[in-house]
Design a protein around this nucleic acid. Structure first.
Length: 555
RNA sequence: UGCCCGAUGGUGUAACGGUAGCACAGCAGACUCUGGAUCUGUUUGUCUAGGUUCAAAUCCUAGUCGGGCAACCA
């Protein structure tokens, strides 16, 4: 059995973060007999985003690096919030990221019977009791952080009575909220989670996976350590907010006498110019501010996928971000760098003109009918393609300036540029409309070996063989680095009104033959992804990310 | 005003008692059939105050600042 992902490459230089060190130390000491078993335990109540990718890469990555296995487990202990609808997207996203859980796909709800038995064991040991305080009443008993709580009047019932009550809770004799099962720990603990936490509640709700078998459901703090222990998880990684829950995790392991899984907390990912909370992402979807969970502007994995981001770039990004206990805010520029770095090596080049300006070549008798274009200068194996040429072309409007600003290297009257893959174009004149707008550029063509020196090369498409296609130019969803920094200001006020611009671009003929999911670099513009729902012969391209532009016209 | 966790350039991270390094971003230059890529150089950093030590980012104490914890959510 092999848990390794076929697409996951062995990255040589890895950062020795604290979790790698804990695992290395456990392997040295033989704590788990050299075994490493991890798990990714999403709650099936929403879509995975790039923050989850960090956890997925960690969970699967640590297993992969140590010849271990990583389980995919739906943490479905709350039927009122969860739905099978999400399990498929979760599996798809994890697989797309490049990871394989092999046969190790589980549901927490499959352990409900064992959890119940273990709870009965706790009751018999006098370590759990049925409490009839309402959640309102409990607030008084629990106390506040600075003061100890009071013991529940039900705290000292006999194990027999507790067992009977708990069995009747399971049998459905009591309505929702009437009773709970509590762990009997310490009402004076400075850690609120140890003040007799609820471990079972009554919920007369059928379960999406377990069906209508249960009307009592275990709480996370009780269920999670049991899930881990049953699967013999050695290293159970979770985010920082569970740090204060760890004593309870250990309490359950110890008092139920289970496999000694250990919980290790790390900081979740935060990215500039986006929001990561499920609630806020849902708000964007529900209010129609984006086109669904997989809108290419969303930080969801399905959104990033549809934007054209390669999974390899996300994995590289997660590795570069590192693992610490410091709650950092990562610059989205790092993600964009990882995407460009990946696509630069792999994406075929093509030419597309987003904002066309007509060019008329005057010496039409001296031009070729087609030229050869290099498919990827970073990868000779990508070969070449033929691009039709003609006496009439389109170039990018911003590649021509009637009155060039200082340091402008592109086309202007009397000046020359290189036409990518083709030759030189010297501007001999312009055509203007009544308002003075340039409607066409007239020029002279010279072959590549002509003794002409230029400082710029521009892209073009042949007028007779160019086709208009829809291109969606995506930009950052928000226009401030921390949209949700201020609790008093609605994060949606920072939405970038120009996060999506749709244009009709003119593209070279080879682009009409694309398959949905193909990735390209439109030379000098950016990386583009052929929309999955493009119709045959009518491709739609999504801009994944722009090229870096070191020429700043404004500066 | 309780408990837990954290703090290294603009950002993310390394250094595990012995020269504060890497990456991203920025800036400058070289090169180039993409103002891309590549290469080179470069600006900026150990939260504060004490202590231990020949030597502290690292160990100790106190403080400051930030985050988390009072769901029958996960």
């Amino acid at each position: 059995m092999n848990n390794s992902a076929p697409a996951a490459p062995e990255t040589p230089a890895k950062n020795m973060h604290f979790i790698r060190e804990i695992i290395a130390e456990d392997n040295r000491s033989g704590k788990y007999g050299g075994k490493v078993v991890t798990r990714f335990p999403p709650e099936p109540n929403g879509y995975l985003h790039i923050g989850h990718a960090k956890a997925i890469c960690l969970d699967f990555g640590m297993a992969l690096e140590n010849n271990g296995v990583c389980h995919l487990r739906m943490d479905d202990t709350n039927p009122v919030k969860e739905d099978v609808e999400y399990t498929d997207s979760i599996k798809e996203d994890v697989r797309w990221l490049g990871f394989d859980w092999g046969p190790h796909y589980y549901h927490a709800s499959d352990y409900f019977e064992q959890m119940y038995e273990l709870a009965c064991g706790l009751i018999r040991d006098g370590k759990a009791y049925v409490c009839e305080l309402s959640s309102e009443e409990w607030k008084d008993y629990r106390g506040i952080p600075t003061e100890p709580g009071k013991e529940s009047p039900f705290r000292n019932r006999s194990p027999e009575e507790n067992l009977d009550l708990f069995q009747r809770m399971r049998a459905g004799e009591f309505p929702d909220g009437a009773k709970v099962l509590r762990a009997k720990i310490d009402m004076a603990s400075p850690n609120l989670h140890l003040r007799d936490p609820v471990i079972y509640r009554i919920l007369h709700t059928p379960h999406p996976h377990a069906g209508d078998k249960w009307c009592i459901y275990p709480m996370y703090d009780y269920a999670h350590p049991i899930e881990d222990a049953i699967e013999q998880i050695t290293h159970s990684m979770c985010t920082l907010e569970f740090e204060v829950h760890r004593p309870l995790y250990d309490w359950v392991i110890q008092n139920c006498r289970l496999f000694p899984s250990q919980q290790i907390e790390f900081a979740r990912l935060a990215l500039t110019y986006t929001v990561m909370s499920k609630r806020k992402l849902l708000e964007l979807v529900q209010q129609g501010l984006v086109n669904g969970w997989d809108d290419p502007r969303m930080p969801t994995l399905s959104g990033l996928r549809r934007r054209g981001v390669p999974p390899t770039a996300i994995r590289e990004f997660c590795e570069r971000v590192g693992i610490t206990k410091y709650e950092s805010l990562t610059d989205v520029a790092l993600l964009e760098h990882c995407i460009r770095d990946d696509l630069n090596k792999t994406a075929r080049r093509a030419m597309a003109v987003l904002d066309p300006l007509r060019v008329v070549i005057e010496n039409a008798g001296e031009i070729p009918t087609a030229i050869r274009g290099i498919n990827n200068p970073e990868d000779p194996a990508a070969g070449e393609r033929e691009i039709p040429f003609g006496a009439e072309l389109f170039i990018e409007r911003e590649d021509f300036a009637l009155v060039p600003p200082p340091k402008y290297f592109r086309l202007s009257p009397g000046k020359a540029v290189r036409l990518r893959n083709a030759g030189f174009l010297t501007c001999t004149g312009v055509e203007q409309d009544a308002a003075g707008n340039v409607t066409a550029v007239r020029g002279r063509f010279d072959p590549m070996d002509a003794p002409i020196k230029v400082k710029a090369t521009i892209h073009w498409v042949p007028a007779h063989a160019a086709t208009p296609v829809e291109v969606r130019l995506y930009d950052r969803l928000f226009n401030v680095p921390e949209p949700d920094a201020d609790k008093n200001v609605d994060f949606k006020t920072h939405l970038n009104p120009n996060s999506l611009q749709v244009v009709q671009a003119l593209v070279e003929p080879s682009l009409l033959a694309v398959q949905p999911g193909d990735r390209f670099q439109f030379e000098r513009i950016g990386y583009f992804y052929a929309e999955p729902d493009s119709r045959p012969g009518a491709p739609v391209f999504n801009r994944t990310v722009t090229l870096k532009d070191s020429w700043k016209s404004g500066a």
